[in-house]
Design a protein around this nucleic acid. Structure first.
Lengths: 277, 277
DNA sequence: GTTCCGCATGAATCGATAG
DNA sequence: ACTATCGATTCATGCGGAA
């Protein structure tokens, strides 16, 4: 059995990332601090400075990602003074200019979003999970994230006549009829680019920014066992915990030492459990 | 009873819009031709030219929208050569520069999205409904789009025992128990910025780009009766039909005269039905 | 009057082939 | 090399006729 390693490092990822080799990471899943002029965590990056602040970091990420690797950026712009900020879409443009390919934008639909009421807007129930790649030949293991097929098959495809099973696509060319018999055996479908996950609502002081299901989905989709996953803004370490459980090597970085201490402790506890008889 | 008017005009909206007065429209809901789509009907605007093509039109829209009005733009960028195009997010930036406020981005989750399979991406199941405003003091009638609350209340009511129902009935004598009627009153909740609508896929005549529920939702939310709704890219006229049914005045424009003829006919039929004894 | 079932269709995307 | 066309792939839904 190959050993799985979890590295947890304390400090500014802009500097720490420089220590890692070129083309060594299979997947980056991260949720960087959002621009916010009010809060003081991470020094409170101002919206106007966000792109400028992020580009040196993403430049390192581009260097150390494998050509077959993927970068998933979970982010959502804040509303301020009645408008959505533009720093996220400006960041997309800047990252493309930096050499990234903007492959896709997944929507994370937060089924139980934060409560609240405002006169000019409704509750924000979605975030962007933006997919960037270094090349067009990235790894994607689509079968790993297939879903149970919709209920419509129960009442519909259950009992097709023999003629339907034989029927080819001579009539319409719509394609549906061609391999109709395949559908009888099928019980799974590929997902879409809209992901439904409930938010985490724990009472701990260090709350996770996303539920475990979110990094788990991307780790399944873009890596295999023994691959290496990086989260340069580790926070409470959700990505790391999931990576470890799924037998992926992982690297987590955070500027706040209390997070680092906490995650190290939790990961060690996991190790103890894993090696118990 | 006030008369409700539906104006249906044929031609290039860039020119026709010039005829309308400043500050005369309460809501614009439209789905312009997407880049490189509908080549036969709109000539297929090249992605690189999209912003340039749209800005003169949006300039007119800005002029004729009331200060309290709202502009909803339904659009989605295509994937090409392995990447998402950037013209939509460039358009957002350009519209802000033109003077629009980017208030919100609603997600239309298409539950029955187009099928297909590719090695590098999943099916695209969402579109943007981008909200722009002229001022921060736009009208928003949030109560009009409240939703029945989810399983929580349903389950609660469903699980009430017979004795509970009888007991409550005996107290009030009004058919519904006091407690139950309280639950019913509280049976609504505000929606979020994620909208779930199936796409239109019937085997009827000209197909609509969005289901009636979509413009209906925005018309409820941003207008009241006798207000005026505009769709400069009318197409099969979904927005117009819904506006008429909801007693809003409406203006529809399309460059294709066959669409104009068709919608005119359908709207007239609606009138006949409305005025029948 | 329901329920069931056949059928067509949809702002899709990629890769190969042809001009 | 660059563009246009075509085939292959895939899934949830509304409509209408039948049971």
């Amino acid at each position: 059995m190959k050993e799985i390693k979890s590295q947890i490092l304390s400090g500014d990822c802009k500097e720490i990332l420089k220590k890692f080799d070129d083309n060594s990471i299979d997947l980056i899943v991260t949720s960087p601090p959002y621009a916010d002029r009010r809060k003081n965590t991470y020094g409170g990056i101002k919206p106007e400075m966000y792109v400028e602040w992020f580009l040196p970091i993403s430049n390192e990420l581009l260097r150390l990602l494998k050509p077959t690797g993927t970068f998933i950026l979970n982010i959502k712009e804040k509303a301020e003074d009645g408008e959505r900020h533009t720093y996220v879409i400006e960041l997309i443009l800047a990252l493309r200019k930096q050499g990234w390919l903007w492959t896709e934008e997944f929507i994370w639909h937060k089924k139980n979003c934060y409560p609240g009421k405002w006169p000019n807007r409704f509750r924000d129930a979605w975030e962007r999970c933006i997919q960037f790649n270094k090349t067009r030949n990235f790894n994607m293991y689509q079968e790993e994230v297939m879903l149970p097929i919709g209920d419509w098959t129960n009442g519909r495809l259950k009992n097709l006549s023999e003629t339907d099973k034989i029927r080819d696509n001579s009539k319409s060319g719509s394609g549906f009829g061609k391999n109709i018999s395949n559908w009888l055996k099928r019980d799974k479908v590929y997902p879409t680019n809209v992901l439904h996950f409930a938010t985490v609502c724990n009472n701990k002081n260090h709350s996770a920014v996303f539920p475990e299901g979110l990094p788990e989905w991307f780790i399944k989709l873009f890596t295999k066992e023994s691959d290496t996953v990086l989260d340069p803004f580790m926070g409470s370490g959700t990505t790391l915990k999931v990576a470890k459980r799924m037998k992926r090597n992982s690297i987590g970085i955070d500027i706040q030492s209390e997070y680092v201490t906490m995650v190290k402790k939790e990961i060690q506890e996991t190790e103890l459990i894993l090696f118990e008889p």
